[in-house]
Simulated scan of single mutants.
Amino acid sequence: MSLVLACLLALVGCGGDDEAAAPENGVSISSSSDTQVEIVSSEPSSAALPVEMNVVMKESPRRRLMVLGEVNLPDQTRLRVRLVRDASNVSWRVMTTVAAGAFEAGPLGPSSGLVAGAYTLHVSMPPADVQPQEVKAVIGEKGRFLEGPYVENSPHGLGRIVKYATTYEVLR
């Protein structure tokens, strides 16, 4: 036991008080003789991205829904747009991509047109794992830079995702 203690004391004694510890997992710790410890991360600082979204729905003459949106997510971000009829839970969905800060989807609904009633429109961004590399570079690994009221944790542990929902009423 005393041999183990002697070895530990010898290891602790190696190196001066002003030396910085070797970086481990992207973090380096340096200390000085006044016992202050500074933690320096080699990872880039987080660039928070508070997600903003504005969605407009337009009903076509054939009673199908076109969705136009503006969003501050990076170009090439993949989005899922889904329209759900509240009374029956029947839904129509389409994938779209952000270009120049905007996206569009549709027409949504059956070819015969939407029947009167309430609908819920969902716009969501799938997890960062399925986004292009250029998008991941902006939103961070597992979407960690995403913030705001439309951002939540994925129910499957895949990081942060974007979810937006609003209602729409077909009157005729």
Rank of each mutant, 00 (worst) to 15 (best):
H156I: 12
T167I: 04
A47N: 08
A48P: 01
P126T: 08
A99I: 10
A87H: 04
G148S: 00
A105R: 07
E141P: 06
L146W: 03
E70A: 08
M95H: 12
P155C: 12
S91P: 00
G143S: 10
V67M: 03
R144S: 14
Y168C: 03
I39G: 04
Q131D: 01
S31W: 06
C14F: 10
E70Y: 00
P74Q: 02
D18T: 09
A100K: 13
G101D: 01
L158V: 02
V27R: 04
E24V: 08
R172G: 15
R85P: 00
S46E: 05
T96N: 03
G113W: 01
S91K: 05
A20M: 04
E24L: 05
P107M: 13
G26H: 03
N54I: 14
K136S: 08
W92H: 09
L79D: 01
M57H: 08
K136E: 04
K58G: 12
A47P: 00
R144I: 15
S111Y: 06
L114G: 07
M1C: 11
D129P: 00
T166P: 04
F103V: 05
P50Q: 01
S91N: 08
S45V: 10
M57C: 12
L171I: 13
E147W: 00
M125S: 07
E70D: 03
A165W: 11
V115F: 08
Y150E: 03
M95N: 12
V56H: 05
V4R: 15
R62K: 13
S88I: 04
T120R: 10
V67A: 04
L146R: 08
R63E: 06
A99V: 12
I39Q: 06
D17V: 11
V151N: 05
S2N: 14
L171F: 14
H122F: 15
P127K: 08
N54K: 14
A102R: 15
P126V: 10
K142W: 13
G26Y: 01
I29D: 00
